[in-house]
């Protein structure tokens, strides 16, 4: 069982001139298609010993509470067959409520928040579920084109079971007016695929008088499924 190549059409092309930085960094020669060997079908495993308390609560990593709108981002990591991806590492990072990253190279003149780093991680549970408590990130300007602003987003990094399921993506918020102007968002050619990067507001995971809930399910590549022929598998 291998991972079908067709699924990869959901991804942006390497060269997308609307996102200026791709112009000198995208390979110009065609990718070489190779068979999926043990090298591609295996991948690293992370255990609970690598995580610390509050790694998935970005509002409790400092002495005080960060400023901003408290949110809970949760969802499931699934494969293309709809099967949960358990015990996989999820890493996130984001700007603070004012749209500023703590990274030393971010020079946007918006305030840093001494109570917010903006980085978190967790492992999915047996059903592929994850949850982070954080604050809603702000939009921020960048220099891609005149008056360019990134829509609010949270960066996500995921592993899944093999080298081929590795994914780095960004989660967006529903109703963000900046989305239609964003080259990153627009770099995904298929609109239905684009919408899979958008979270949805979720009253069910909203905690009364505490935090708004957003749901974001992530789908990783999955091997060709033949469930009808092998009902006893799993």
């Amino acid at each position: 069982m291998t991972y079908p190549l067709e699924s990869l059409t959901a991804h942006p092309p390497n060269l997308y001139p609307g996102y200026r930085s791709t112009v000198k960094r995208a390979p110009s020669r065609p990718l070489v298609i190779i068979p999926q060997t043990l090298s591609e079908l295996t991948g690293p495993v992370f255990g609970h010993d690598s995580l610390r308390e509050h790694d998935n609560d970005l509002t409790r990593q400092h002495a005080g509470e960060p400023l901003g709108e408290r949110i809970i981002v949760s969802g499931r990591v699934l494969d293309e067959n709809g099967r949960p991806v358990p015990n996989t590492l999820v890493e996130i990072w984001q700007a603070n409520a004012a749209g500023r990253y703590i990274h030393v190279n971010d020079q946007h003149p918006a305030p840093l928040d001494p109570n917010f780093t903006g980085a978190g991680r967790c492992l999915t549970d047996a059903e592929g579920r994850y949850a982070f408590t954080t604050i809603k990130p702000g939009s921020y300007p960048w220099r891609n084109h005149p008056n360019a602003w990134r829509p609010a987003h949270i960066h996500f990094s995921l592993f899944g079971p093999s080298f081929l399921t590795r994914l780095v993506t960004q989660m967006y918020f529903p109703g963000d007016p900046l989305l239609p102007y964003d080259p990153m968002w627009n770099s995904v050619p298929d609109e239905r695929a684009r919408l899979r990067m958008m979270s949805s507001f979720d009253l069910e995971t909203t905690v009364p008088e505490w935090a708004l809930g957003y749901r974001f399910d992530i789908v990783l590549r999955g091997r060709d499924a033949t469930p009808m022929e092998d009902p006893h598998h799993d």
């Binding site: 996102y19 709809g82 960066h155 780095v168 993506t169 695929a193 899979r196």
Partner: peptide, 11 residues
């Protein structure tokens, strides 16, 4: 089984 579409990659 209905195949789900994968989440696209971003930088």
């Amino acid at each position: 089984t209905q195949r789900l579409g994968i989440t696209p990659s971003q930088t």
